[in-house]
């Protein structure tokens, strides 16, 4: 790419050029000259914008500031996310890079792009909606990931109904995209712990009902990943209240006991790490005690043979602890 040889256009010109070209992507017939030219225009402008932002490792702050301001003024970011599926392969990658560079932009303690996006929820939701399109899902997923680093944006997503489209994106996409969606789902639930803990306490029923679907998934990957994440959420200190609530429901205990007997060793193992909390709970509700007691002999026999090949000392200790607890029931 030799756009440095071309006359350097100003950020305003670049943004305008880009915005003008986007509608023309769908003008005329598919495959027409108009579309092809529009595509070239988009790709070239994005390339030049990226060059300003990354500037060979040494970007000019003044140009970057102008550019950022121009994108806010024109809602360019929204337009990019909405139209990214129409762009060329390289242009899509450039969109992610441009977006994420702007997201990382910091002036003193202020994050201008984050502030801008906090006021424009639609951009965040449009980015999440990228999972609907397999061709761009990884590009938008990358942007979403960068957004979720910021608590204000993360909170908007978590508190919105759109958050509950994650299970759909995790369940109903192919492996690569499902994993990306899951990673961002996990990011939303684990990065900003106090904020998430408060949310989970307030929205316990809705959240765990949705979560139970993931745990019951017929897809091995979904089941395994969500079970592991459940363990992480419950065992996090910040989520103590949520955890105590979770382990007071016998239905949850039953689910874990069934998962302990899953055919997959990995799922068994992840289930163990949730199951152990039920047993270790010093204030077990009577119905939980009842189930454990009813299955006392079976559980003891089961745990005796459970994953004895693991060399994990902590696991062995925990298992011994559980056996002692169940014996003492």
């Amino acid at each position: 790419m030799n756009f440095f040889k071309a006359k350097q256009r100003t950020p305003a010109e670049l943004v305008r050029g880009l915005r003008d070209a986007i509608p023309r992507l769908e003008a005329g017939q598919p495959g027409s000259e108009t579309r092809r030219k529009a595509n070239e225009e988009v790709t070239r402008n994005l390339g030049q914008i990226k060059a300003i932002l990354y500037g060979d490792g040494d970007p000019l702050p003044e140009l970057v500031a102008q550019l950022a301001q121009e994108t806010y003024n024109t809602d360019l970011l929204h337009s990019l996310v909405l139209n990214i599926h129409k762009f060329d392969f390289e242009a899509r990658k450039d969109v992610s890079q441009i977006f994420n560079n702007l997201l990382r932009r910091q002036i003193g303690s202020r994050w201008p792009t984050v502030e801008y996006l906090t006021a424009k929820h639609d951009i965040l939701f449009a980015t999440l909606g990228g999972y609907d399109n397999e061709d761009v899902a990884l590009n938008t997923g990358m942007i979403l990931k960068e957004m979720l680093r910021h608590e204000s944006l993360c909170k908007i997503l978590l508190y919105s109904d759109k958050f509950y489209s994650f299970p759909h994106y995790i369940e109903d996409t192919t492996f690569g995209i499902s994993c990306d969606a899951f990673a961002n789902f996990k990011e939303t639930l684990t990065r900003h712990k106090p904020m998430v803990a408060e949310y989970l306490e307030k929205n316990y029923d809705r959240f765990f009902m949705a979560y139970a679907q993931l745990l019951a998934s017929s897809n091995y990957v979904t089941k395994r990943q969500s079970l592991k994440l459940l363990g992480e959420i419950l065992l996090d200190r910040a989520n103590f209240n949520v955890m105590t609530r979770y382990i007071s429901y016998e239905a949850n205990l039953k689910m874990m006991m069934n998962l302990l007997r899953d055919k997959s060793k990995n799922i068994q193992f992840e289930a163990f790490h949730v199951f152990k909390v039920f047993v270790a709970n010093p204030n077990k509700p009577p119905q939980v005690v009842a189930i454990l007691r009813r299955n006392q002999a079976k559980l003891l026999a089961f745990l005796k043979d459970f994953h004895n090949d693991k060399e994990d000392e902590q696991f062995t200790d925990e298992k011994q602890f559980l056996i002692a607890q169940i014996q003492a029931l």
Binding site: Y249, E250, A251, K254, M257, N258, R261, K263, K265, Q268, P285, P286, Q287, A290, I291, R294, N295, K298, A301, F302, D305
Partner: peptide
Amino acid sequence: EALGSVRSEWSFDTAASNMV
């Protein structure tokens, strides 16, 4: 079989408390 010797199901059925 992957589970080794334990084959019987857990016994949950008699637990029908109000909580459930």
